[in-house]
Amino acid sequence: MNEDLLFNEAPEGPPRYSRLSTKPVQYLTVADKDGQVIGYAWANDEEDAAGWVVRKAGGDEAFNEGSVWAFKLHDAKARDIAPTAALAEMIQESDPTKTSHVVPGSLTEAPNADAVRQLGNSN
């Protein structure tokens, strides 16, 4: 109990899209089964960037359900799929009978990833 802990640096881990994009991004709105927005998935191919933004006003339920959408992005990157192709898959595979789904027709553009993050902070 009195020994120092030794930390060994771990390998990089699984591949991930960049979480930063200063260029225009495409994004989707995701809602729960009741139609309440829980968050946004965004992507930019030029910077190999993509991310999930939880809508903070959605509380713990939005945070928990958002992990499904973040995992979809991680899985797409592991399969070496372009970020916007990952969004296209999300649209194609979305099912409104599930606990959350892509809002139909919600694919749009924002000036950058920070603009989408601001959406997550709004009411």
Rank of each mutant, 00 (worst) to 15 (best):
92 Q>F: 04
72 K>E: 06
32 D>A: 05
38 I>C: 03
89 E>P: 06
51 G>F: 02
80 D>E: 01
93 E>Y: 11
91 I>W: 07
92 Q>C: 01
29 T>W: 10
66 G>V: 15
56 K>C: 03
87 L>S: 05
39 G>C: 11
78 A>T: 11
49 A>N: 04
26 Q>M: 12
61 E>M: 02
37 V>Q: 10
55 R>F: 01
29 T>E: 14
65 E>N: 12
31 A>N: 10
66 G>M: 13
43 A>I: 03
44 N>M: 02
92 Q>A: 13
90 M>E: 00
30 V>Q: 08
53 V>G: 01
31 A>T: 11
82 A>S: 04
78 A>L: 13
82 A>M: 12
51 G>Y: 00
29 T>R: 14
35 G>T: 09
73 L>D: 02
59 G>E: 05
77 K>S: 09
36 Q>D: 07
69 W>S: 02
29 T>A: 12
31 A>S: 15
44 N>I: 02
80 D>P: 01
86 A>P: 12
62 A>W: 04
31 A>R: 09
37 V>T: 15
77 K>Q: 13
87 L>W: 07
79 R>L: 12
59 G>M: 06
46 E>L: 09
35 G>D: 03
48 D>K: 12
44 N>A: 00
90 M>A: 01
28 L>G: 01
45 D>V: 03
48 D>P: 07
50 A>T: 00
29 T>F: 10
84 T>N: 11
60 D>K: 08
67 S>G: 14
86 A>G: 09
91 I>S: 08
46 E>F: 12
45 D>W: 02
36 Q>G: 03
49 A>P: 10
63 F>G: 01
28 L>A: 06
82 A>Y: 04
41 A>I: 09
70 A>V: 02
42 W>H: 03
30 V>G: 06
36 Q>T: 13
93 E>W: 10
71 F>T: 08
62 A>C: 10
26 Q>L: 08
68 V>Q: 07
58 G>A: 12
76 A>N: 13
56 K>N: 04
50 A>C: 06
70 A>P: 00
37 V>H: 09
67 S>R: 14
78 A>W: 12
81 I>A: 06
42 W>E: 00
31 A>K: 06
83 P>V: 03
78 A>G: 13
51 G>K: 01
66 G>Q: 11
82 A>N: 02
87 L>F: 15
67 S>Q: 13
68 V>L: 12
70 A>I: 02
35 G>N: 08
73 L>W: 10
29 T>H: 11
74 H>Y: 15
93 E>R: 11
26 Q>N: 14
52 W>A: 00
87 L>D: 07
82 A>D: 05
45 D>P: 05
35 G>M: 11
65 E>T: 13
72 K>R: 13
69 W>T: 05
45 D>Q: 04
29 T>N: 09
33 K>G: 07
76 A>K: 13
93 E>V: 07
57 A>Y: 06
26 Q>T: 06
63 F>E: 04
51 G>N: 00
93 E>N: 13
61 E>V: 10
48 D>S: 14
58 G>P: 14
31 A>F: 10
88 A>Y: 06
26 Q>E: 13
62 A>R: 03
79 R>Y: 08
66 G>T: 15
90 M>K: 00
89 E>A: 09
52 W>I: 02
49 A>V: 11
82 A>L: 12
81 I>Q: 07
45 D>C: 04
89 E>C: 10
80 D>W: 00
66 G>R: 07
53 V>L: 08
30 V>C: 09
83 P>F: 03
53 V>S: 04
36 Q>V: 08
65 E>L: 15
46 E>C: 09
57 A>P: 11
